[in-house]
Every structure is written in C-alpha cells, then in structure tokens.
C-alpha cells in the first residue's frame, strides 16, 4: 500500500496519527439499509459477528451524528436524491462503504430502475462485493477502511 505523504513536522505528524487512530475507533454508521444487504449488515452488528467490538454497534438514525454511511442495497432512481441528501447532511470527516454488488455497480439489475453504482451519486471509499456479502466480507471491508484511515491512505 502506498502511503500518502505525511507532514514533515514531528508534532503534527504524531497528532495526525493520533487523530486517525481515534477516528477509526468509534466510527458510527448511519443506518442506510435498503434491501437484502441491510439484513446482512444487521447480522454483522448482531451477536454472532459483533460490530460492537469495533465501537460500531450504534447505527445512528440521524445522519448528522454518523461518520460512516454503509450503502447496503440497491439504489433506485427514486432513492438517489434521498441518498445524496443524507450524505450531504453527514458531518466531515465521513466515509462511504458501498456494500454489495447492487450498490457497487448495479449488480444483476442492469435496467432502467437502478443507479448503476452508487459512486455515481456519492464518493465511495470501499467497495464490498457479494450478493449479499456475508458478515465476514463486510467486516473485512470495514477493517480495511479502518486500516486505510489509520495508515493515512484514505484522507478526508
């Protein structure tokens, strides 16, 4: 993984690292479960595959209190403006995980009704493939996001 060039100053460098570490430790997702992937997202938060050990079990209903938007499911043309509005309401720094095939690329539904990939509407940091991705896949995606932030590759 290529590292983004950090600051040359030891004080702000350590501060940056601390801030990045803190940002990954309790990243609250906004509940944006749309379809089948939402079920697997809830399963990831449930007891068997526990998101609470990463500080993420609180799915905030209000986007203003959330850091991470996991777009879980297929985004229809009618839903796209709503998605954008929720994304805009989130405060910086914010990240987006596109969960599942439908969110990443339109999935198996290459037709008039779906936005072919949610990255046409919001900027995406991590794409998690699967239909639906199992909790382990989603967890891998979330941890990759954490790693990317901590290392400095994903900069917001």
């Amino acid at each position: 993984m290529a590292r983004a060039s950090g600051p040359s100053n030891i004080v702000t460098g350590v501060l940056d690292k601390a801030v990045n570490w803190a940002r990954t430790r309790s990243m609250w997702p906004a509940s944006f479960g749309l379809a089948c992937c939402a079920i697997e997202m809830m399963a990831t938060g449930a007891a068997h595959n526990d998101l609470a050990r990463f500080g993420m079990e609180v799915f905030r209903a209000s986007p203003r209190q959330a850091d991470l938007m996991i777009v879980a499911g297929r985004v229809s043309q009618k839903m796209a403006p709503v998605l954008r509005q929720v994304y805009d309401q989130m405060a910086d720094p914010k990240w987006v995980i596109s969960m599942g095939a439908c969110a990443s690329s339109g999935g198996m539904f290459n037709n008039y009704a779906l936005v072919q990939g949610v990255d046409q509407v919001v900027p995406v940091d991590i794409y998690v493939p699967g239909c639906p991705p199992g909790p382990q896949s989603l967890m891998h995606g979330i941890l990759s996001l954490h790693e990317g932030i901590r290392v400095g590759e994903i900069v917001r």
Binding site: G106, N110, N111, Y112, A113, Q116
Partner: peptide, 11 residues
C-alpha cells in the same frame, strides 16, 4: 417501462 416497446434500459 414495462411495455414491450420500451427497452430494458441497460447500460
């Protein structure tokens, strides 16, 4: 869209 003379709309 579901009329037969409307396309599926695939990209």
């Amino acid at each position: 869209p579901l009329r037969k003379d409307s396309p599926v709309g695939s990209v």
